[in-house]
Simulated assay, not measured.
Amino acid sequence: MIVIAHVSDIHIGATSSSIDRANAVMRYLDSLPADLDAVLVTGDIADHGVAEEYEEARKLLTSRHPVLVGPGNHDVREEFRRVLLGEPDPGAGPINQVYRSAKAVYAMCDSSIPHRQNPGHLDDETIAWLEGVLEESDLPVFVAFHHPPTLLHSPIVDAIRLQRPEPLAELVARHPNVVAVLVGHAHTAAATTFAGRPLLVAPGVISTLKLPWEGATTPDTCADYDLPPSIAFHVLDDEGRMTTHYRVIQ
């Protein structure tokens, strides 16, 4: 059995409580009595993409569990690389990372568009990189990135979802070892399908996004910062079945 924690949208610097909320999540994970196979953080690490925010995130996003952190639309690739990844001469290319364990492979793709544009995109370099990751192992693969590649029926998020998802869908459909696609960006827990696989959306740490039937009509009125942070636990059992639990962190 594989158990992973899925964390997203911590937005360090967005509010005065952003550090405390992220810290509560990470310390909760460290307090668990059992080891997790991985902790995946799917983007929007910083709110403004500046070095000071990443310095705080670097201190917060530490754990006794393996942690893999990817960018979102609020992140800046160069500062992300320099501060979080420790690259002395950071470039502007996509930040694609892979973590391989004895039981699974975790492919963190960069769906951000430079200059902090809100929609997402997986460029040809990233698709080719992911194809190589999928082809080199028969282990289960979790594909993770920031932007949902399909409609979630949340108009504010749907307007800035992943653009041109067809190459990804074709790639996932060809590789049965992809067991799930994991994303963030929506600031609300959701579960649907993509290319015939589970598409699992992590809730937000910094805030929760209201849905249309809850009164979300504009970006200024949709985010609830009073609700506590939430995360997801994804479980892949020995029969290949995915189960997701969502947990509120008080």
Results as ranks from 00 to 15, higher is better:
Phe80Thr: 03
Glu78Met: 14
Glu135Pro: 04
Arg164Ser: 00
Ser154Thr: 15
Glu78Leu: 14
Glu131Tyr: 03
Glu166Gln: 15
His153Lys: 14
Ile113Met: 10
Val141Glu: 01
Val183Lys: 00
Glu125Gln: 12
Pro114Val: 10
Ser111Met: 07
Val105His: 03
Val143Cys: 07
Gly93Val: 08
Glu125His: 11
Arg197Lys: 15
His121Met: 15
Val183Arg: 02
Pro148Glu: 03
Arg174Trp: 07
Gly93Thr: 14
Leu139Lys: 15
Trp129Phe: 13
Ala195Pro: 06
Ala180Asp: 05
Val143Phe: 04
Ala159Thr: 12
Ile156Arg: 05
Val201Lys: 00
Glu125Val: 10
Asp138Ser: 15
Phe145Gly: 00
Gly184Asp: 00
Pro155Thr: 06
Ala195His: 03
Asn96His: 09
Val172Asp: 01
Ala104Phe: 08
Ile160Val: 15
His187Val: 06
Arg197Glu: 04
Trp129Ala: 10
Glu170Leu: 10
Glu131Val: 03
Pro119Glu: 14
Arg197Trp: 05
Ile113Arg: 04
Trp129Asn: 09
Thr150Asn: 09
Leu152Asn: 02
Arg81Phe: 13
Asp124Met: 08
Glu79Asp: 13
Leu130Ser: 02
His153Thr: 11
Glu170Val: 06
Ile160Ser: 12
His115Gly: 10
Val69Pro: 01
Phe145Ser: 02
Leu168Gln: 01
Pro165Met: 01
Phe145Asp: 03
Leu200Trp: 04
Gln163His: 14
Asp110His: 10
Leu162Asp: 01
Ala173Lys: 14
Ala104Asn: 05
